[in-house]
Design a protein around this nucleic acid. Structure first.
Lengths: 188, 188
DNA sequence: CAATTCACTCTACAGCCGTTGACCGAACTT
DNA sequence: AAGTTCGGTCAACGGCTGTAGAGTGAATTG
């Protein structure tokens, strides 16, 4: 056979992607500490040493597997701002990208993940604060908006609270909207 | 000397308390996984084997060190309800008891802690839902109230977001109150 | 004062972890 | 067809973990 069933580069790309997928899934399910390289390798049908060879270390694998939390581009329109925030925290559409879930799952026990999330939330708070009309304490109000939504996301995606899982996403969004507006400022 | 400087029972109680204090502190700071029995023992000035001897296992030590998340007794008065919720999540007064912090720190990566927190939040959601006037979806509204406050607490106590740390607690409470009322129902 | 209890320490085991380096065989190159 | 590259495996290391059991010496008891 002069034509191999699969080119070397193709195989390489495919297994690398398989490893990243398994890593994302396990990091999202168990967090950084409790996810072992051996488990990722087994889920990808591969030797643990290969994971090291491709990604260098568990930390670097984590870094490649997760994605940065998206910072929304807030508009000055309050309604649109609410929608963007809800979407960025996975409360609308099909949920968060798995890499983001992995990052959030690890943020309370892993220093690096905590730093990353803190920075991302800080950026989000800043931009939300800048987009608020101009009430008394825009920064604090923005922080409350973002962290309140973070809590709903945690309860929904990470803790799996029944009361939230059973509710349709746009229903949740509809109930949250007036509360967020109340937080954003007295003028609405 | 017929009078020992310290009775055996006293010493026992004292070191047991010292171990529990160290455990609470470390579990709150690092979570369940990253806290080692050796570290707890070292912080308490004691041999690791003694910790095992007194508490049986790391899991049981964790169980003794953390406390159940308090379930507030909600009144039918909305203002009082808000205050009770804020207090129960550490947003007023001197903050959460350390055992609760430890539990929250571990809730995203430890199955037992997750179950415990889920149950505690579920109870809180039920009682809050029962206390709401009677809007369209009391259970869902209650879940959103509780998880939103959970998020603020996480951002404040666990992530240490600057925008929240710098704000006085009663100021935060004042801003949150109208938002919670908006969540609780259209009637206020 | 002799005997016993018990708070506490020492030493060690077995298992899992991240990580490494030697190795193999199939895909490429010349 | 011979030589090289490289995706992938195998076996092993050192370190850290939770945990167990034997031992020690001071407080207690009779």
């Amino acid at each position: 056979m002069s034509t191999p069933r699969q080119s070397r580069a193709d195989r390489r790309r495919a297994t690398e992607a398989r490893i990243l997928d398994s890593a994302r899934e396990l990091f999202a399910e168990k967090g950084f500490e409790r996810t072992t390289i051996r488990a990722v390798a087994a889920a990808a049908g591969v030797d643990p040493a290969l994971v090291m060879q491709y990604f260098g270390s568990k930390r670097k694998l984590f870094g490649q597997a997760v994605q940065a939390l998206p910072t929304p581009l807030p508009t000055t329109d309050a309604d649109e701002l609410v929608d963007q925030l809800l979407a960025s925290l996975g409360l609308k559409l099909g949920g968060l990208p798995e890499g983001t879930l992995a990052m959030m799952r690890s943020m309370l026990t892993d220093q690096a993940a905590a730093d990353h999330v803190r920075a991302a939330l800080g950026r989000q708070i800043d931009s939300v604060g800048a987009a608020l009309p101009d009430p008394d304490h825009p920064e604090l109000r923005a922080a409350l908006v973002v962290t309140a939504l973070l809590g709903v996301t945690i309860g929904h995606q990470l803790l799996g609270l029944a009361a939230l899982r059973e509710a349709p996403a746009d229903h949740i969004a509809a109930l949250l909207r007036p509360a967020i507006k109340a937080l954003a400022g007295p003028s609405g």
